[in-house]
Design a protein around this nucleic acid. Structure first.
Lengths: 145, 145
DNA sequence: TTAATTGCAAACCCTTTGCTTCATC
DNA sequence: GATGAAGCAAAGGGTTTGCAATTAA
């Protein structure tokens, strides 16, 4: 009997599996990758259902949507604000342990006069994995494994 | 005789006007808005040309591409790193005067071991304009004036 | 002269949506 | 049983791209 702006939300096997797939990885997968994973459990699921449920999960605060550069959205099963590092070579996204910079929000609201509700911080560069195999230009690998 | 990875780049009236339109506003416009503006000077220009040139400008470091939430990319004629505030009510994007947080890059490279080349920081909330006309839910207005 | 760039339109990718059927409450 | 959600497929928005014609160098 969960309620949100959309009315009642029923518990479905599909959404359950989608969320568990999302929570079982730290690769910040795309909708398509999640689709392929969920399909191994529910072979008849459709991409539309993936998208619909990801939207529900994001809107209800159970997941987070990330958009870097171009291409597909990436999803994070950890909805608490945290920061990311994006590798420009392989496209991997890493969670960072950097502590939340709440003071920056204060600074902005004081100086600019806007009511600040949230912030995002991400770093770009070459990840440790790609550095160790230098001179290799990966075919961007997006969130697999 | 500018050279970049793509070979020689010719100076064209189209790109000139696109860049000047982009630099003449602080509204962080979308490609489509730029298109409409440039069209008043070059009525036959096509959207494809807008996109092609925006890509050239971004790749050559003369402009910056911003992607917030869903929807179209927004472009910034100021290519130096700076931070933004995005109003969740009206979709306006504001430049912030917050100083560059270079120490955070150091912290990340030390702690996580990645080579950090850049970072982005943006704040979300309700802007001062929207706060003063409270109880009004704007039709998101995207970057017009 | 010749190769980069344009205009045009079609293609593309990712995401959303309409509709009928299914299944949860 | 109602009605929210699924599956399917078609539509949608934003962006890219192929190609012949143009134009800067």
């Amino acid at each position: 009997m969960v309620r949100d702006r959309r009315g009642f939300i029923r518990r479905t096997k599909q959404r359950e599996v989608i969320l568990s797939v999302l929570q079982s990885t730290d690769t910040h997968p795309s909708a398509d990758w999640i689709y392929e994973e969920v399909r191994q459990v529910l072979p008849n699921i459709s991409l539309g259902t993936i998208y619909r449920n990801l939207r529900i999960l994001v809107d209800s605060g159970e997941a987070m949507e990330l958009r870097f550069g171009s291409g597909a959205s990436r999803f994070d099963g950890n909805p608490k604000n945290h920061y990311h590092f994006v590798c420009l070579n392989c496209d991997r996204i890493y969670d960072l342990e950097l502590s939340l910079q709440e003071k920056l929000e204060e600074q902005v609201s004081e100086k600019a006069g806007h009511r600040v509700l949230d912030h995002r911080l991400e770093f770009y560069g070459i990840c440790d994995v790609c550095q160790s195999k230098k001179n290799t230009i990966d075919e961007p690998r997006h969130h697999d494994s």
